[in-house]
Every structure is written in structure tokens, then in C-alpha cells.
Design a protein around this nucleic acid. Sequence first.
DNA 1: GCGAAACCAGGACATTTGTCCCAATTAGAG
DNA 2: CTCTAATTGGGACAAATGTCCTGGTTTCGC
Lengths: 192, 192
Amino acid sequence: MSFAESLAEQQVKCFNAGERLMVQEKRAREILILKSGITKCYRSEENGKELIFEFLGKGEILGDLETILHTTCICSVEAITPVEAYSFSLEKFDEMIENDKTFHRKLLEELALRIYQTATRTSYQQNYPVEYSLIRFLLIQKEQNLSFSKQNIADYLAITVRSLNRTVRQLREGVVNPDISDSELRQLLSSL
Amino acid sequence: MSFAESLAEQQVKCFNAGERLMVQEKRAREILILKSGITKCYRSEENGKELIFEFLGKGEILGDLETILHTTCICSVEAITPVEAYSFSLEKFDEMIENDKTFHRKLLEELALRIYQTATRTSYQQNYPVEYSLIRFLLIQKEQNLSFSKQNIADYLAITVRSLNRTVRQLREGVVNPDISDSELRQLLSSL
DNA sequence: GCGAAACCAGGACATTTGTCCCAATTAGAG
DNA sequence: CTCTAATTGGGACAAATGTCCTGGTTTCGC
């Protein structure tokens, strides 16, 4: 049975907003593939600070990395909106890697893409001022019709909420000038 | 023929310090596996700034990600010391993914590990003050008996050289107090 | 509807970091 | 050997960011 076929008859689990699908440093007990809803994938350090790596939605897979490396979760994943997800046993996952070449290959692409995206984003965030990253973020937010709390946005941009507010203000007042039309900018900022 | 066997009779290429093994935005023309020497893997943005993702040495593979995704290089890779590397054709690489299950699986682990490491490091660097990351870096540097230029260290830590100097000074003068013994600290700092 | 908790906004101040310098030292090419 | 380029170290100032705090608004469970 192929992966696509098996998905249809897989068990679906539901999570409320705020519930955690994965917990950092704990073993993953299953593989999840998101069916609907939005989650945040973040890592918290011992000093209480946290960094959001990505917001995950439909089609994205959780627990794969940890299962491949036989290690505990590197991130926590928390539902932002109510979430539905297909659940797979770890055994099933291993078996599919072993026997379904197409799946194995897809997984390879999936991981490669994740590296690609985080590398691109990290570099951008480190090398450009925050305004740029913020606008980039807002474009994606708009494109996908989503809305995140200030705290989440700040954690994603690796700054404080206070600092985020300042940046928004400066953009509104035109103190800084990103390469984007004035009307489009105003449109983006209206969502916060 | 297995991967391990084929390595032995593979072509070896040499690079001088400063030469680039991969060039950002260009297509990879081959897969390289480092045999000796140290390289830096970095990304530069249009404004001239650059961020070093990792220093790569013996055993690490280049061009895999790009080949899997059929895309151009996301980073440049430059030799810091003279480097030797085994070269594989892209066809050979594709073929091995297709036919050598062990290799395919190893590749999966390789990519997963890379995500694991960059995620851990990024989070740490964002959530702790620079002194901590610097010491972490120096420990690795010492462990592997290496020595990097200030500029490279700064690019890796995503700060300026000026800022790096300040941090070193503060550590020397004991203004800040990382959790490490005084003598060991002095030992680490002696390398710069 | 009400109270607690989460969210949003921003003032005031301290700290960190970057930018722009200049000067001394080192390494390497010719 | 010599001269240039790269490397290192740091002063002075500006800009960015964090911290702490206060007050208003929204949200949600009971």
C-alpha cells in the first residue's frame, strides 16, 4: 500500500489551540502529518527565551527528523489554531522508509527543503535590518490569510515585542524606507 | 559496488586556500566529499554582508542538497586551508540514491543531522548573549586544533569584528561570567 | 456580566552593537 | 628585502535593542 493510499485510512487526531503536538526533549511517540490548522515550531532555552523556527500548516510532517536520528524532539510544536493531524506509528514510518522508495525519496526532498528554507531565512534575518524581515513575514502572512500575535511574530523575528512595536511605528511614519510601494505597505501594516 | 568501495577509486580534487568549492546561486557541477582540510560554508546577501553557517571538514558532503532539490547552491563553500575532496558526478549521485538503499538512508541521516545542528545552534545564538556562543565556539576550535581569523569567527557569530573584540575583552577582564573555570577560560582566550 | 489573564502600546533609561575612524602588526607577493 | 594588503586592537559616537513599567483593551471561562 502506498503512502498516499494509506493516508486516507489513517487515524486523525485533534488538538486544541495551545496544546502541544511535540514536546522539546521528549521522545516523539508518533509521526504526525498536519491535515488542517496552524502550529508553531519553536525551541526554548533554559533561560526562558524562545525562538520560533517556523509556522507549520497543512501537509507538513512532525517527528520525522527525531525518528531518523533516534533522538528526542529538538523543538516543541504547539497548535495556534485548532489542528487536525494524521497519526502514524513510528514502526509504520520506519517500514515505509525501508520499503517505499518513493516515500523515502520524498522525505529526502522534504528535509532538503527545510534546510534550504531555514538557511535562506536565517541569513536574511541576520544580514538585513528588522524592517525587511518583518515585511517579508507580513507578505507571507497575508498571502496565507493568517494572523499571528505580536509575541509570536517577535519570537519568529528573534526580537522583543517592544522592539517589534518600534519597527512597526517607524514603518508607519515612513522613518525607514523598504523597497515596497506606500499603499502596499499600509495594507500590510493594517493587519497589526 | 557500494558507496564505501567506490570512494577508494574516486577522483580526488585539490583546492588552494581561498578557492571556492561551491558558488552561491550557481549550479553544482559535482558532488564533493571532503577528504582533508577546512572550509567555510557561508551565504552572502546583496548588501555585502555574510553569515557563516558552518565550518566543514573531513567526511562532509557538498552539493547533495542542491542536487536533491534541483536548485542552485544556497551557500558558497570556500577553502580556508588547502583542501582535498573526492568528486562524484551528479549522475553517479542520483544513481546511488536510486540503487543503494544504505546510501540513501545515510543521506537521510546526514540531512537530518544538519537540521538538528543548525537549529540547536541558531536557537542558542539568538537566546544567549554572545559570550556564551563565543566560548562554545572556542571549545570546538580547541577540540579540533583549529584556528580561525577574527573575521571568520565574527561572521560565524553574526556580529562585527569590533563587537567580537569587545566581548573578548570583557571575558578577559572578568566583566562577564560564563559558567567555566577561570583557568580554562584563560586557556581558550589565549588562542586569539 | 465579571474578573483574570492575555494582548497591545509606548515612555524612560541602560546596555549592546554597529559605524567610522586611526594605528600597529603581520603575511605574503614580487 | 620591501612594499602592499590583510589582520588586529580599540576610541568615540550613533543607532538599535532590551528591560522595566504603566495603563488600556480584548478575550474567555465561569
